[in-house]
Every structure is written in structure tokens, then in C-alpha cells.
Design a protein around this nucleic acid. Sequence first.
DNA 1: TATGAATGAGTTTTCATTCAT
DNA 2: TATGAATGAAAACTCATTCAT
Lengths: 199, 199, 199, 199
Amino acid sequence: MKNAIREPRQKRSIEKKNKIIEASYKLFSEVGYYGTNTAEIAKCAGVSTGIVYGYFQDKRDILISVLDIYIRNVFDPILKILDNLRAPLNFELLVPQIVDAVIKTHKKNAKIHEALHSLTHTDEAVNKEFISLEDRITLQIAEKLKKIGVEIENPFEKIHLAMDIVQSFSHEYVFDKHDYIDYIVMRDMVCRTIINLFN
Amino acid sequence: MKNAIREPRQKRSIEKKNKIIEASYKLFSEVGYYGTNTAEIAKCAGVSTGIVYGYFQDKRDILISVLDIYIRNVFDPILKILDNLRAPLNFELLVPQIVDAVIKTHKKNAKIHEALHSLTHTDEAVNKEFISLEDRITLQIAEKLKKIGVEIENPFEKIHLAMDIVQSFSHEYVFDKHDYIDYIVMRDMVCRTIINLFN
Amino acid sequence: MKNAIREPRQKRSIEKKNKIIEASYKLFSEVGYYGTNTAEIAKCAGVSTGIVYGYFQDKRDILISVLDIYIRNVFDPILKILDNLRAPLNFELLVPQIVDAVIKTHKKNAKIHEALHSLTHTDEAVNKEFISLEDRITLQIAEKLKKIGVEIENPFEKIHLAMDIVQSFSHEYVFDKHDYIDYIVMRDMVCRTIINLFN
Amino acid sequence: MKNAIREPRQKRSIEKKNKIIEASYKLFSEVGYYGTNTAEIAKCAGVSTGIVYGYFQDKRDILISVLDIYIRNVFDPILKILDNLRAPLNFELLVPQIVDAVIKTHKKNAKIHEALHSLTHTDEAVNKEFISLEDRITLQIAEKLKKIGVEIENPFEKIHLAMDIVQSFSHEYVFDKHDYIDYIVMRDMVCRTIINLFN
DNA sequence: TATGAATGAGTTTTCATTCAT
DNA sequence: TATGAATGAAAACTCATTCAT
């Protein structure tokens, strides 16, 4: 039972563990996983290097915790939206609301999203977590729609496609990379496209 | 004149440089940039570790060369399609062809795409190269459409959105991550969506 | 008065100190001194890491306590045998008894013996303790023999040699390392050899 | 094929690898395996820390190489003695010669012997190597005796016991630990004991 | 040009010991 | 006395880059 990881129960400890996760979140966002070292994490969290390994097995274990936080940050707003969904659905009103919500979430999480998503290629656990996130979003939306009596042909494919579109658009929108694009126009275009998809 | 990088003129030298790029391409695809070290690159290319620094400033410089190749691999098929474009356009026929072409390209390049794209977050030059690629694709398509007399409202936004959709779908298609998705159904959905966008 | 080590007087304290020693004894036996860390000792003893330093100066100080116990475990059976020694000695009967007793002791202590003895090379105090143990065994046996009127030429050398032989044989016997050796035959050989030494 | 270990072919490289082994041999002898760190090994060998890992997988791999050298240093003199053995054997002359030879070998190797032997407890490979050494010595002696026509009852047990006696005595002799022992007297006693064993 | 051995700063990780509670 | 979280120095090991040949 070497290297037993403290599962902190006391408030102070939990706070310290969270500080380490927050520091890592921040640093991974800014300079990526490979650009961050454990000494910097410790320093940024205001703790010693040693205690980092009191709370986490290794550097990758911190990554997983950061990933957890990220996943929650992304998934929770979606759940909230779904909770408030009532029949009959007015897609004309609903879709823009959702698009704006996703943009808002993405604005807050874009950098850590990039940092974490860039690891899907080389870290199977991270990859799985992202896939699972997509699965959960798709399936929960499908379930909800069915529950409130909205009949859709090929619901999984439609929802998933819509999600992909909103996601990649949000990314474009947030990073505002191309000066020949009018992102307001593009936003409306995205909404229209998705509305058409569901009608 | 320290660190003067040879611009190889002799055939043998050019071949050697290409071998290094190919080896890197392969290794970056398989285990990513950070998972590859220069000794492995040299070994895989069949050259010495030292000579790598005869052809490249540093490891990142190899990355840039690999990126160039990748960009060309992705952009060339698009150029070819554009070259063959003649008015009047039949979107019903054209869009599926393009979608399938992008899928085909993506099948060949998906892994290196991930490896390289994951670096956009931390490497500004890589980031710019990806943005520029999108710019060039969007603008060239727009130009071509104009040239052959196809009038479209908000062409940049439409083309860019279409590109985003096709790209993210191709990624889904190639990695085939979700078992509840019928990717054939989804492909048709993507085509339909894009056709609607342009009509 | 920094680092003042408590000499535990209360019963509970003495018990706690003993628990730490026992835990260390066990762990040193299993994975050696360097393979054991103080956190494990504390955990195995059911105490906090901090209090270990209430009873011991440092990790090495625990080692010394473990060594003390070991020395006692080895020396006491010998004392008991010596106490029961009465003239005239029948070496034919006595030697096998002693050999079997040493084997028995060794069976119980072989692993901790190895763990501790392996430190004689780098820890002078441990080394001295082992030398002193041999000294005391040799001298006490010599004294006893003299006391009961057994005259032996070069008693120290003989006793010491006999002790060495019995010890190294016990080690062989306990670990049973060589399959081409019949350890029963070897045991009789050892007894015979020692009997001859003293006749 | 990460961390490929150089198998040095060039003379300079072999020399460097040997230097590292020699430095380790020296340091392990003086302060033991756990008292030596790789930086010190490198410094003592006059090389960089990095190149140590060019020649060896890890620190333990150096240990194994040191062990190999030690084994050879101990085994070769025995082989030489065996080679020169001719019937009829005069044990009265032969045994003292062997005892002195073993003492001589031990004088040269006692410290590294202790350092390496202390690891048998925690490193199975080291343990096996020591057992194998004893096996080879015992079996080769037995074989040789048979070859030159010397008939012995229970040869393996006798030879092994004799080896144990000589070994533990050599150890005593070299470290000269007990001032009440006359090691010259003890040496004769050892010789006598072994001669009796074989007659 | 080419080799591949060599460098050494930098990284992750461990653990005896201390200290706030 | 007792706790166990916290410290930080030190360890093993890696790898981009250089350099003697």
C-alpha cells in the first residue's frame, strides 16, 4: 500500500486539493499540459511540490481531475436547459437560446477545452471521457424529447449533427479567427440550419 | 554563421531531408509530437541524430515541415475538385461528391491532423497555419463560385459553415466513435443540410 | 530542549512504542530497511506518522530498536541452553540439540536477520552490535564451559568457528536454496564436524 | 523502441562503459547501493549523468553489471585452482592452499561482496546470481574430483559445507573483528576441520 | 556532410522529518 | 501527547541539442 493517496475529508484539505486542481486548470489552459510542470502547479496553488503527490497519484491524475471539472462545467448548463424544456417546443425560439448558451459556455471553457481535447489523441482515458460526454449529451437530449412527446426521425443522428454544428461554430465564434466572417450572420445561419434539421 | 541550416540542393540531401519529415509524420501520427523524440525520428528515418540538426533548426522546425506536407495533402484534393467545377452546379450531385472526397482525405490524414491540430493551442505558428488553411479553402471556393457565375448570399459564412460541418462530420465518420449513430444516415443528413444551405 | 525524545513511562505509551517497533520489525523483514518508509511503519503500527518522532529520534533510531529486539530473540535461546548445561557434557547428544535449536531460531528470524545484517556494511552501529553479539555468544559459552570444568584448547577459536559453521548451515537449511543438497545429510555432517572439533 | 541502450562496440565506448562500472563498483563498495546516487557515479566515472542512461537501463542495471564483474572476480581464481588439480590429492597440502587463496580473493572483494550480498534479500535477480555462483562452485568441484578419480561419499554436501566454512572464516579473517581470536590458530583449525571432512 | 556519443538542464516523483492544530 | 497534512531537498531519469571524430 505504498503511495496511498489522501482522500481529503477535512474542509481545509478539500480546499487545498481544489486549489491544486484550479492551479492546474489555469496553467493547462494557458500553456497546455506539456507546458506545465508540477513545480509550477505547486507554486501557483501555493503549496509544496510534495503535497501535490499527497493528493494525486501523478501528474496525469491531476489531468483527470481537471478533466472532470471541465466535463461538469460543460454538461451542467446543458442539463439545466433540458430540465426547463416543455412541450410544445418552439424551435424558432429554442435553437437560438441553446446556441447562445453553448457559446457562453464555450467562452468560459474554450482554452481548457483545447488543452484537454488535444490529449485525446494520445491518452485513451481522456479520449473516452470526451466520447462519453458526447454520448451523454446526445442520449439525454433524445430521451427528453421523447419524454415530452416530440417525435423525430433518426433522433440520434440529428441531435449529434446539431451538436457538432453548434460546437464547431462556437469554437469559431469564440476565437474569432477569420476577419472575412461576420459571426452574427453566421450565428443566424447556424440557427436556421438546425431549425430546418428538426422540422 | 552558427546553426546555419543547409538548404539541401543535392538530390541525396533532399531525399534525406524528406526521409526525416516522413519519419516524423509517421511518428507524430502514432504517438504525437511530445511522444516522439529526435533519436526515434533519426532512427526511423535511417539517419544519425546529429544530421537532423543539419537540416532542421530544432525539433519544432521539423514539426513545421510536417505541417506543410499535411496542409498540402489536405488542400490539393480540394483544389482539384475546384478546378473541375463547371456551371451550372448541381448541388444534389456535387455535395455528396465533396463530402465523400473530404471523408477520403480525412481517412488518410486523421491521425496526423489530430497530432498537429492539438498543437494549435500552444504554438502560434501552427495555429496560424491552420487558420490560413481554412481561409484559403473558404476564399478559393468563394472565388471559384463567383467566377462560374454562382450567386450566393453571404458566401463566406455559408462556405465556412459548410466546411465546418463536413469537417466535423468526417472526423466523426472516420473515428466511428458512437455505436448509436448510423453514419450512413448521418452522411445523407449532412449532404441534405449543406444542399439546403446553398439553395 | 528540541527533539527531546520521550522515554515513555505510561503503559499506553510503552505499548505504542512497542507497536511501532513490531511494525518496523515486520516491514523490515518483508521489504528491507530501504523498502520501508515511515508512513508505512506508522500505518502498520496504527499510529500517526508524527508520533513516531515522539518515540524515536529518526528512522535509524527505529532500526536500532528493532536490532535490539532481534539480538534478544537470538541471544535468549542460547542463554537458556547454556543455563541448562551440566557436566559431564555428552557432545554426541548436545551438538545436535544446539544445531536444531539454532535452526529453529533462525527459521523465526532469518528474514529480519538478512534485513539487519545487510546494513552492517554501511552502518557502523549495526555492525558493532552484530560483532558484539558474536562476542557475547563466544565468551559466554567459553565461560560456561570453563565453569563446569570442560577443558578445551583454543576455546575462543573453536567456539567461534563452531558458531560460524552452525550459523551458515542454518541459513542454508532455512532458505533451502540448492536442490542437489540433502539438508538432512548435511545436518548430520555439520554435527559430526563440530563434535570432532571439540574432541 | 524507446530508451534503446547502446551496446558499445567502439573501444572508446567500451572503456567508458567500463569506467561507469568501475566507478559504481568503487562507490557501492564504499557506501553501498543505496548510499550511491547516479550523479555521483557519473562524476566519479568522469562522465555526464545522461550517458549513464545511454549504457544502462537504470541504476539497478548498473548493479547487475557490477555483480557480473564481482562474480567473475570470485569464480575465476577457483577455476584456475581446479584446472591445476591432479591426482592423487594431498589434502594436507591442498586445503591450506585453497583456504589462503579464498582469503586472498576475499581480501580484494570483501567490501563489494557485502554491498552486493546485502541486496539478495530484496532483489531476486541478485539473490539468484549468488545462489548460482554457489551452485557452480560446488558442482564444478564435484565434477573435477570425480574426473581425477577421487571418490567421496555425499560429495555435494561435503563440498558445500567446506565452502561455507572457508567463506565464513575468510570473512572473519579479513574483517578481523574479534580481538580475542587468534586468526592464525583459527585458520589452522579450519584447514584441519576440512581435511577431516574429506578423509 | 555524417555520425552517434556526450552533455546537462529540466522533469517527475519520493520520503524523512516538521509543525499547526 | 497525538494527528496527519505539509515541507522541500534529493533522487532517478529524459531528451533536445552539441561536438569530437
